[in-house]
Amino acid sequence: MIVFVRFNSSHGFPVEVDSDTSIFQLKEVVAKRQGVPADQLRVIFAGKELRNDWTVQNCDLDQQSIVHIVQRPWRKGQEMNATGGDDPRNAAGGCEREPQSLTRVDLSSSVLPGDSVGLAVILHTDSRKDSPPAGSPAGRSIYNSFYVYCKGPCQRVQPGKLRVQCSTCRQATLTLTQGPSCWDDVLIPNRMSGECQSPHCPGTSAEFFFKCGAHPTSDKETSVALHLIATNSRNITCITCTDVRSPVLVFQCNSRHVICLDCFHLYCVTRLNDRQFVHDPQLGYSLPCVAGCPNSLIKELHHFRILGEEQYNRYQQYGAEECVLQMGGVLCPRPGCGAGLLPEPDQRKVTCEGGNGLGCGFAFCRECKEAYHEGECSAVFEASGTTTQAYRVDERAAEQARWEAASKETIKKTTKPCPRCHVPVEKNGGCMHMKCPQPQCRLEWCWNCGCEWNRVCMGDHWFDV
C-alpha cells in the first residue's frame, strides 16, 4: 500500500509500505531520502505521535493516508518512550493509558441525555464484534464512529474520518494533550489543546475536521460531520418502519427517538411537499423529531443533505422563500418566477423588478396576487391545505425507538455506581478489583462488596467470576 509523507509540512511524497511495516522502518526510509538522522524524526498522525514499535496496521493507516513527519531533536526523557523501550505506560498493571487514536474515538455516547454525564468515556458498548469485510486488514473493525456528507465523488452519507490540525499553522502536526470525549470537544473551536510539532510553531489549540472515509482524499478535501447519525450498535428499532437498520439518525429530543435514513428521507420529502418545515429565527429551515417532541429541531442543517441534490435544492429554495415571508415580504405569483420581494408595508401595487435578471417585471396586487387592478379585489380565496398535519407515529413504536432507553438498560445490566462519587462504572470481565475512572475520584473498590478495596476482598473473592 501507499502512504503519503509530508516532511516538515512540505509537499508530500509517496512511500510504499506493508501492513506489518513498523513506524521506525518508515522513519528509516524517510531519513534516507531526506539525509537526516532517523532518531530525530517524529511521525504524527490523527493528533498522535506514533511509536517506533507500532506497525502501519496498528495505527489504522489506510491506503493513501497522509502522515506528517517532522525533524525535531529529542528532548530529555522522550527518546526512550518513542523507541518502544522502557515506557512506564506499558508496564503490566499500570494505570496510565495511551491517548486514544482519533481513528478509534467514539462519540456516540454523547447523544445520551444530559443526566448521563461521564458515560462518553466510561461506558463502552460490546456491539462492535462484526466481522471485518472481505479485503480489510485482519482485526480491523467495521464499526463506524462518525458519518459525514461527502460532496465529492460519493454525493451521499458516508463513514467519516476525524482529523485534527494546529489552529495556528493549519498543519496536521499537532499532538493532542488528551483525546475528545464528546461532540462539544470536536465542534467547539479551541476547546481542546495540544502541542504543535512543526518547527518554530508555538500553536497549542486544536482544530478538528472530518474527511470522507470511503475514498482517498487530499489535504484540502473536508466534509461536514453529521453528528446525529450513528451506527445502530444498540439495535434500536426505527420509529417509523420498526426495522432494525444501521446507520440511524438520533433526534435530540428527551427520548432520543431513532429513525433509519430511508424513513428520514421520506419524512423530509413529505414535509417538504406540504411546505411544513419549521422556520426558526436562529436555526433556519428545519424539522423536529418525527414524533413531534418539543425542543427537538435539527440544529445542523447539513443533515438535510440526505435528501439528495434535487430535493436539497428545493429545500434551500423553500427556506429562502419562507425567510422572505417571515420578513413581511411577498413572492411573485407569476408561474416560473417566484422571486422574493420586500415592498413597503402599505404598498398595494407590487412590481417584480426586472433588474439584474432576477425579476420578471410582472405587476400584481398584494392582496389577491392577481395582475394589478384598481378598486376592490374580486375574490380572495383562503389558501387550502395549509394546516399542519401531524406525522403519524405509532405510540408503541415510539416507545421502542428510544436510544436513551437502550442506554439505561445497558447501564443497569453492566454497571454499578462507584461507592464514593456514584458514577456508573462498567465491568466487562476481569477481577473484582475496580478503579473509578473519574479523575477527581480514582477510588479503588470491590465490585462484589461495593466497598473500598481491602485485604478481605483480596483474599476471599479477588478473582471470582
Rank of each mutant, 00 (worst) to 15 (best):
S116M: 08
I236F: 03
K32F: 10
R51C: 09
D464R: 15
V324N: 05
L61E: 00
P113S: 11
A138G: 11
C293N: 01
F209E: 13
K32Q: 14
P14D: 02
S167E: 05
I69L: 04
D86V: 11
D219V: 08
P137I: 13
D53G: 05
K369C: 07
C449E: 03
D115N: 10
L50W: 02
F146C: 04
A405G: 10
A172L: 07
P247E: 05
D280Y: 09
Q34V: 15
S109L: 03
C289S: 02
V324M: 08
F210A: 02
V5M: 03
G135H: 12
A363R: 09
R256P: 01
V290S: 05
P424G: 10
R156K: 12
C169W: 00
Q400W: 12
G135M: 12
P180Y: 01
D62C: 11
G429C: 14
Q326I: 07
N448L: 11
G84Q: 10
S116A: 14
V157M: 12
T222H: 11
F45G: 07
I122S: 15
R305D: 05
A138D: 13
C352D: 03
T240N: 14
P189C: 05
C201K: 02
F264P: 00
T240R: 07
K299R: 11
E399Q: 11
W183H: 02
A214G: 11
C293W: 00
D60T: 05
L107I: 10
T173N: 11
E79V: 10
V248M: 04
K408H: 10
L325A: 04
S110E: 13
L226D: 02
C293D: 01
S218H: 12
G203C: 02
A291L: 08
F251K: 01
Q71H: 07
N144R: 08
R334H: 06
V3I: 15
D243Q: 15
R256W: 02
Q389D: 13
R75I: 13
T270C: 09
V36G: 01
S223E: 09
E444G: 06
D20F: 05
A31W: 01
I188S: 12
P113M: 10
G429T: 15
V224S: 10
I142V: 10
T270I: 09
P133W: 10
V15R: 01
P419G: 03
G84A: 13
K220C: 10
Q178A: 12
R97Q: 13
H279V: 06
Q389V: 14
C268S: 08
E79P: 12
D464N: 15
L102F: 10
V117C: 14
V324F: 05
T351H: 08
E16N: 07
V105M: 14
C446A: 01
G361H: 09
S246C: 05
R271L: 07
P133K: 09
G329E: 03
G450Q: 03
F210D: 00
C352W: 02
N295D: 13
T125W: 05
D280I: 13
D185M: 02
V17T: 03
K427D: 15
L266G: 05
V164M: 13
H461F: 00
C418E: 01
Q158R: 10
C323K: 15
G93A: 14
T217A: 13
L61F: 08
R51W: 04
